[in-house]
Computed example of a mutant assay.
Amino acid sequence: MDTETSPYLNSLQSDGFVIVPSLLTPPEISTLREAATKATTLTRAGQWPYFRTVPKQFPPWPKDVPPASEGGIWGVQHLLHPDMPGRGDFATLYFSEKVLGIVEELLGLKSVSKEEKAEEEEPLVMELFNLLVAPEQKDFELRWHRDDIPSTVSAEEELRLLKSKSPQGRQSHAQYNLALCPDTSLIVIPGSHRRIRTETERNADPYEAYLPGQLTVKLGPGDAVFYDSNILHRGVYKPKPEGSEETRLTLHGSVGLKESSSTTDGDDKAADRAKVRATAVLQHSVGMWIDRDDADLSYISERAERMRRNLIAMGRGEDVGYSLEG
């Protein structure tokens, strides 16, 4: 694909992230913020069983919500679950043309016409749609990381993994943060998705407050950032003042590309990539409910239902393991 006609892809490949301002309209922001606030309130009260808890950074997550004095939660999982209040609003956004159009560009599908798409099998896979929120009563920070490359690997192994996870410079999924409130939580090191860590980065404290070249991603309500999961990044979350409205409501989504839609090398490499991606997605337990009868998404669109079925084909995720620990 000609990157001169694909500015989002060009920025993603060069910098490792791309900011899309005003992706949502004010009415969409209002509707989604109301749904996200309700989901967060239920979760904080122990009435939604899927969440991310302070101080853990990666799954598996505890089964009980910690008290506010210990930070409580920093995320609500599974916004597309059939039991989630507001599921329809979340699904309408996740499967919208405005989101999937950017995903298609980032995954190299922009040149495929709608007529061709209708005649072919669905190339996109429904993956994850979660919500990132402010902890309570205490700060919470994520350590520097790449999403599924352990920090303990050697420089040689790090380079091999970087290349294998982005063949021809492109990942097999697109992920994003979409803010419903002002958000400056994400910190990235531009360009780090294409290289091994420097000695300074490798030897730094996992929670180092400043590394050379780092940049804070600033999002206003309705803005989105799409980023390469291999970029070195971390999160810094300020607590929600007691009794206040929610101060952070950021939708965190990922959409995958079927391996058969992107494979250009041997079957073994394709199978390895598919296994790695299945681990990254299914470790969050989405496979445990996605095949429920009431999880059908055809009421959103035929394409949404095809994408759901592509996720079902990945499996349920028993004993799939975890990408990272901590």
Score class of each variant (00 low, 15 high):
55 P>T: 02
170 R>Y: 02
305 E>A: 06
284 H>K: 08
243 G>R: 04
286 V>K: 00
218 K>A: 12
95 F>Y: 12
31 T>K: 11
285 S>A: 13
15 D>Q: 15
273 R>C: 01
235 G>P: 05
223 D>M: 02
20 V>T: 08
229 S>R: 10
56 K>R: 15
158 E>K: 04
34 E>H: 14
116 E>Y: 04
165 K>W: 14
98 K>R: 10
140 F>M: 02
110 K>D: 09
157 E>L: 14
123 P>A: 00
161 L>E: 14
259 E>V: 12
17 F>W: 11
164 S>V: 09
86 G>P: 03
137 Q>D: 15
259 E>Y: 11
85 P>R: 07
26 P>E: 11
153 V>Q: 06
6 S>R: 15
79 L>R: 06
150 P>R: 09
110 K>A: 15
154 S>A: 03
231 I>D: 01
127 E>T: 11
30 S>P: 07
57 Q>G: 01
226 F>Q: 02
153 V>Y: 03
274 A>E: 10
47 Q>M: 10
137 Q>E: 14
155 A>V: 15
4 E>C: 12
164 S>F: 12
186 L>G: 04
310 N>W: 05
39 A>Y: 07
112 V>G: 00
120 E>P: 01
280 A>S: 14
23 L>K: 03
152 T>N: 12
41 T>R: 13
147 D>I: 06
234 R>G: 04
114 K>F: 13
317 G>C: 05
